[in-house]
């Protein structure tokens, strides 16, 4: 059991990430040696901690907004009275996810100008789609006998939603949230081009000023941020699927990575059921 513990990725990812976020200046000699032409060797526009906090805040707030809108719309689409809207909402989610995230970000600029606001809008809009899609799929996947039994026992519609449908749909909904958040971390980095203060700033600054070391510094931090977040979601997924038979839990052979972001690809391969 303890050997398994040490293979838990969070155990080494978190300290590694913390090191880069807080201790980038410590790597000064390394970057000075590798890229002698770049002065100063470490990106000095803002501390990486500040950049990460802005970035995380932007992703967190927009993800929360996406969550509320996406799950809300998904619930409406699966109620008897909202049933009519389900097909068109699913179509909207599918088509919308065909739009490249960077295009959605670009389109937000004419509407809202520059800065954090268009980035926030683009992140929220784009994040709603996978969450909506997965909420509908998850709620629709609740076995009919379970719902019938719940209704027959005298649970109100609200109780059925809260105690039966949502808990059973939670793993699928969580997968949608995971996709939305991971994509948003990347899109928020690109948001630096429209003036949002994020971890993309050193990358963009480095690309524009031909300072490769800044690009690498920014890239390492944002990449680790994404990987760490994905690992946290995987932990959460495991916890939520405790009640399932071990076959149904799809514990992937060889580790947690397999069922991560690639789950989106897998879901589309097998037609949405994951």
């Amino acid at each position: 059991m303890s050997a398994r513990r040490y293979r838990d990725p969070l155990l080494w990812l978190a300290p590694l990430f913390a090191f880069f976020v807080l201790g980038m200046p410590a790597l000064r000699p390394v970057f000075a040696w590798a890229f002698p032409a770049v002065e100063p060797p470490i990106y000095a526009g803002d501390t990486f901690l500040a950049l990460w906090l802005f970035h995380a805040a932007l992703v967190a707030v927009s993800s929360f907004a996406s969550l509320v809108l996406g799950i809300g719309a998904g619930i409406i689409a699966t109620r008897r009275w909202g049933h009519e809207f389900r097909a068109i909402l699913e179509a909207l989610a599918t088509i919308g996810q065909t739009f490249p995230p960077v295009a959605v970000l670009a389109l937000a600029v004419p509407a809202l100008g520059y800065g954090a606001l268009p980035t926030f809008l683009a992140l929220t809009l784009y994040g709603v789609l996978p969450i909506l899609q997965n909420t509908i799929a998850g709620l629709a996947g609740v076995p009919e006998p379970v719902r019938e039994a719940a209704e027959g026992m005298g649970l109100t519609q609200a109780e059925i939603l809260a105690k039966v449908e949502l808990p059973l749909a939670a793993p699928v909904i969580l997968a949608g949230i995971r996709i939305a958040v991971i994509i948003n971390i990347g899109t928020a980095a690109i948001g630096s081009t429209v003036g949002a203060v994020t971890l993309g700033a050193p990358i963009i600054g480095g690309l524009v000023g031909d300072k490769t070391s800044y690009v690498i510094q920014g890239a390492i931090v944002v990449a680790l941020f994404a990987i760490l977040t994905d690992a946290c979601f995987e932990r959460l997924r495991r916890r939520l699927e405790r009640y399932k038979a071990s076959g149904a839990r799809r514990d992937p052979p060889g580790g947690w990575q397999v069922a991560g972001f690639g789950a989106r690809v897998r879901a589309k391969v097998s037609g949405g059921s994951g």
């Binding site: 076995p143 006998p145 379970v146 019938e148 039994a149 027959g152 808990p167 059973l168």
Partner: peptide, 9 residues
């Protein structure tokens, strides 16, 4: 009911 309808979670 026939399929039981027990709450799996």
């Amino acid at each position: 009911i026939q399929s039981g309808g027990l709450f799996p979670h």
